[in-house]
């Protein structure tokens, strides 16, 4: 069973848990600090429809998600087949959903701006 894959020395597994906790905390602190000071340069720079600051938040979030899934949920010790069926399926469907809904939302925003006399009556 999965046990043989997860059996390590007591020390190394626990050490890995605490180091992952350290990284997760650090990333969260960085996010909060950036969210509070909101550096002008990062807010003003736009990169693919969004400010650089938002992209940083999203990348850091995905990094945290990766750490939680791989280290805490033991994805790194599961078989390749299980890992791919969960991660690839999820990522593909979510990316598709986001693409469709955000494009549509942006289109409606444009209609509100240009397509009618007023909507704030």
């Amino acid at each position: 069973m999965a046990h043989d894959a997860t059996h390590q020395d007591d020390g190394s597994a626990v050490k890995r848990i605490w180091s992952v906790f350290g990284i997760l905390s650090l990333v969260t602190i960085v996010e909060v600090i950036l969210g509070i000071i909101k550096p002008e340069f990062l807010v003003k720079t736009t990169f693919i429809y969004m400010s650089l600051l938002n992209w940083i938040f999203i990348v850091l979030t995905l990094y945290k998600a990766y750490l939680i899934t791989w280290a805490f949920m033991h994805m790194e010790h599961e078989s390749k087949g299980l890992r791919r069926s969960v991660v690839w399926t999820g990522l593909f469907l979510i990316a598709y959903l986001l693409f469709i809904l955000l494009t549509e939302g942006d289109y409606i925003y444009e209609v509100y701006q240009n397509g009618q006399m007023t909507w704030d009556f």
Binding site: L82, I94, E104, G105
Partner: peptide, 27 residues
Amino acid sequence: WFFITSDALTFSGFLAAYGFSRFKFLD
């Protein structure tokens, strides 16, 4: 894992709908 994958899709449905509304009222 089956349950988690499907539940993840439920949550991303919520969050994507949030993103949709936010883009709609972007300003």
